[in-house]
Design a protein around this nucleic acid. Sequence first.
RNA 1: GCGCCCGUAGCUCAACCGGACAGAGCAUCAGCCUUCUAAGCUGAGGGUUAGUGGUUCGAGUCCACUCGGGCGUACCA
Length: 542
Amino acid sequence: MKNYLHSLFAEAATRLDYLNGIKLTFDIPKSPEHGDYSSNAPMILAKNLKKAPRLIAQDIVANLKTDSHIISKIEIAGNGFINFFFTPLFLSKLVSEIIEKNGDFGKSTSYSGKKANVEFVSANPTGPLTVGHGRNAVCGDTIANLLEWVGYSVDREYYFNNAGRQMRVLGDSVKKRYLEILGDNMEFPDDYYQGQYINLIAQKIYEKYGDTLRDEDPEGIFKSTAEQEIFLEIKNSLANLDINHKIFYNENDLYTEGKIQALINSFEEKSLSYKKEGAVWLKLTEMGNEADKVIVKSTGEPTYRLPDIAYHIVKLDRAYDLLIDIFGSDHTATYPDVLAAINNLGYDSGKVKVIIHQFVTVIKDGEIVKMSTRKANYITLDELTEEVGKDAVRYFFNMRNLNSHMNFDLNLAKEKSEENPVFYVQYAHARISSIIRMAQDNNIAPSLQDLGLLSSEDEIRLLKILNLFKEEVLLAATNCDPQRITAYVEELAKAFHKFYTTCRIIGVEKNLSSARLTLINAVRIVLANGLSILGVSAPDKM
RNA sequence: GCGCCCGUAGCUCAACCGGACAGAGCAUCAGCCUUCUAAGCUGAGGGUUAGUGGUUCGAGUCCACUCGGGCGUACCA
C-alpha cells in the first residue's frame, strides 16, 4: 500500500517540483475515519510555500493520478492532512499471496546474502540462569529470529569466561562444601557462592572421588566440574525455551591464541596506548570518549575491557555484516570504549549494534527480590518456565519495550497464567483451526474467487491488518524491537475474535462461506507466522 | 557530582521520522451462549502523559531545569 502511495507521489512530483524538497512519509492514522494512510506533506510545505496547507493539499490531490480500483477515496482533513482510503478488493488481493506463501509469508529478502551474529545471554557459568537473564535470552533469540525473517543468515553466540576471579571463587566454594562433606568444619565466607547447587556439585564430586581430593587445587577438578555441571544446566534452561546457541566462545581462547597480546601490540604500535604508574592505558580521550581507561593492570593482568575489544575483533574478522550485542543496562558504560577502540584499529564499528535492555524487577509476595547469584538470592529461569510454560515466558518478555524497566510479579505470573495475552492470541489460532476442520467435514472448500464479497466492517478490518504484517516484521527487525510483533499479533487476534462474533463462516451463502474460509485461513497463517517469530507455539486445539 | 535509561488510567504496559479526540490488557460495574471453541464479544467508569518553562502550524515524543526511581561512573566482570 505504502509503495503505491510513494509511486503516486513520485509521478506527481514530475509536475509539482516542491514535492521533491521534502521527505515523504505515510502514517497510519490512529482513527480509521482518517483513512488507511495519511500524508502530512501539505503542513510541512506550508511554511516554505507561504500558502495555506489545505490549499497545498488541494493542489497535490489534483495532481495525483489514482487508480479507482486501488484507491476508493482521498480526503483533505484537519489542518491539512491528505487521507487515503484503499478499496476492499485491493486489500483482499494479498490473501492469495498469504495462502500461497504460507509459513514463508512475511519473510523478505531485504537483507538476503548478509550474515549476522547475535551475541546474547553470555552469563558466566557461576550459577543457574535467573529470571533476570530470561529477558536477555528471550529477546536475543527473538531478535535473531527477526533477522532471519528479513533475510539474514544468523549465528547465535554465547560468550563466557571461565578464567576470572568469579570462577576461582566458584571452585573454592565447591571445595569448601566438599570438605564439609568430609566432616571438616569449614568457615564459609559471605562472598562465596551460597547456592544449594554448590553443595550438590560437591556431593557429586564426593560420590565420584571419595575423600581423595583433600589436597586438590580448588581450580582443578572442583572448578572444572562446577563449570561443566552449571553449563549443562544453563544450556538446559535455554533449551527449555527453545534457545540454542550455535557458538560458545570462551574468553580464555583469546589468551591461548595470542589475541590479547596481539591487541596490546597493535595499540602500542598505533600509539593508542601509553604506560602510567605501571599500568597500560588506552587513549580513549583522544578517541572522543570521556576518560582514558586501564587495559593492563600494573599486575600484568588485563582488565575486562581488553578481551571485550579482542572478542569483537574476532567476530568482525569472521566477516559478519552485522554484529548485535544484547546487554543488560549494567554494560551501558563499557561498550562506547569497545566501539571507539575497534574504530581506531581500522574496523567498521558501524557494523556493531548494541542493544541495551533495562533490568527486570522481580516481585515475589509483594516484595522486590534483589537478585544475586553470589548470595543465592534468585528465582531461576527454570522455575519460571516450569511454572508458567515456555510460551508464556517467551511471550511475556517480548511484550515489553526493551528499554523500559519491567516489573515481573511472580505471583501474578503464576496465578494469572490463564489470562496471559498469549492465550488470547493462541486461542484465535485454535478457533480458526477448529472452524477449518469443521468446514472440511461439511465439504466447504476455500476459494480465492469471491474475495470481493468480503465487505463488512469486520472483514475489511482483518484485511487491513493482514496488509501490515510484512512491514511490521521489517520494522521490528531493523529496529530490533520484538515488542512490535506481540502488539501486532494481539491486534490481529482481537480483530478476528470480533469478526467471529459478527460473521459466520459455516452456514452462510456458499460463495461467501468459501471467501470467509479463505480469509480466516490467511489470518491463521499470519498468526502462526507471528507466533513463530516470537518462538511461541500456535496450537490447533486448546 | 557526572553519564545512560525510565516516570503515561487503581495495576502492568503501548503510542513507527513530532501529527488529528493519548490506547490496550488486568481489575471494577452492566449485558451477550438452542447454531463454527464464552480462554470469546459488547458497553460503562477511570488521565493536567511526574512538574515548570521553551521550540512550532502541532509535543507523551524535541530542548532546559526541578522532583522521583533504575543502572553505570574501578588497575571488579
